[in-house]
Design a protein around this nucleic acid. Structure first.
Lengths: 259, 259
DNA sequence: CGCGCGTTTGATCGCACTCAACCCGCGTGG
DNA sequence: CCACGCGGGTTGAGTGCGATCAAACGCGCG
């Protein structure tokens, strides 16, 4: 049980260190964070509106989504979360929930107290910057989704989403060369793309008949990666991030110890 | 000239302290930030793609937008920035530009070096948290836009945008009781809502004929605030933020001095 | 076996796009 | 002083993408 917690936190650290340089001491502090496991059934909200959160949710396994909804109850998926994502790290600084979290499949999450995260961030400026950076990367993904919904027709939207998910799964170590698991229903894909499930179905079919990709049974099988990217007008630049070191001279911890 | 810089920075500080508690020392450090003024003509990009930014842009006056564009050159406005907004504070932690910045009207901005911002954030954890929180508030606005584009028809989208801009202008001290200046063309509004300018025109007309609001000559005149909010399914919850104090016990600066 | 969920397909509808023309106010230059 | 260009707004006619409504299918499961 303790090993599982450790493994989950290591995944979180791996995600951070893929983007920001953290030294040993900082990594150890993160791995020492308290966390409690929670299993969530499929189709369940696990962070609800109007709540004031005290914990952030680290996804170990499954597929979850942040979503918004209109007064008439229609849902829009804001962002999909895959294993290793801290679904609502942002809640540390904005605890009032404006966009609930929902499990698309059975998922297991680890709840980490805001207090502990704030403490680590306060002690280590590089960690604070890494958290901030993580949030802005997510914001970038949302921004691209906005472009996707605002300016692309259904085929392009779907192709773009599939490209993005492939790259995100690849980043966390999943083998995506031929195919990858993406257990979202056509209904849910529609909720992410602002389209109806019936139209998703027709669009999936169109992409298959174009020889680009097959989406079936929760598995995405890519026939023509180049073609899919151009169909979705996909430029991975917003996902491929290089390492940034926030331990810069003149703004390092040593300076703080002096103050 | 020095007064103007001071005034611009005070606006930035005001924006931060509206959401996060900062003590005198932290405020003084922020007001001491270096900044250089830059005037930007209308319809000009002032932060371009592929650049690696070294400065963040504080908007003193005018109307600017962060936007994305497809391969075919169509633009989607991701977010509008009004005076007092730090348009790309996020670039401190994600310096690679993925979404350029564009001036919709003649605007004056102040460029603040990333290095200086990082230094202040590293010295004062509460400032780091305030920056992070500021970024997540923006991300929340983008998330709501995604819901807006994905799940609302043209009238609702426009109404929602007008409500949001009214509230945002109100927050920075503009009198919006009867009307407020919003110098965006119908073309640009279309770019923000994922609609064509002709359809914006018809939708503006529809809202006017419904007795809700008039948009003309860069001025938004509201006839029926309640009606406009319900037409746009507008819930200001995502904008109305209470103060958060990051100087919490157990995660305060004193702890750091001890370490 | 029957039920429920997700997928598939058909028929029709309608919102928003496209194409096109025209108006207006403004600035510029002959 | 007027001619002209230009950017933005307005309106009309026709089109098409995606929504809606409806029915059937396949499959896992109790």
């Amino acid at each position: 049980v303790h090993d599982r917690k450790r493994a989950a936190l290591e995944r979180f650290v791996a995600r951070l260190t893929r983007r920001s340089v953290l030294n040993d001491e900082e990594v150890q502090a993160l791995l020492a964070l308290p966390a409690e496991m929670k299993d969530v059934a499929a189709n369940r909200d696990f962070v609800r509106m109007e709540e004031r959160t005290t914990h952030a949710c680290l996804l170990e396994d499954g597929l979850t989504a942040r979503f918004g909804q209109t007064a008439s109850g229609e849902r829009q998926i804001i962002m999909l979360h895959i294993p290793g994502d801290m679904a609502d790290l942002h809640s540390v600084v904005t605890p009032k929930v404006t966009t609930p979290l929902h499990a698309l499949t059975r998922s297991t999450i680890w709840r980490i107290p805001h207090e502990s995260l704030k403490e680590v961030a306060s002690r280590y400026p590089a960690v604070a910057h890494a958290f901030w950076r993580d949030g802005m990367v997510d914001a970038n993904i949302i921004a691209q989704s906005l472009l996707n919904l605002g300016r692309r027709p259904a085929r392009g939207r779907l192709a773009h989403l599939l490209c993005e998910m492939r790259e995100r799964y690849r980043e966390i170590g999943v083998d995506v060369t031929r195919e990858f698991a993406f257990p979202a229903t056509q209904q849910q894909i529609g909720d992410a793309l602002g389209l109806t499930p019936v139209h998703i179905n027709r669009t999936v079919r169109a992409l298959r008949e174009a020889g680009l990709v097959e989406v079936s049974g929760g598995v995405v099988r890519i026939f023509d990666w180049e073609g899919l990217q151009s169909a979705g007008d996909f430029d991975p630049a917003y996902l491929t991030l290089n390492l940034v070191d926030f331990h810069s001279p003149g703004a390092s911890r040593t300076n703080i110890s002096q103050s």
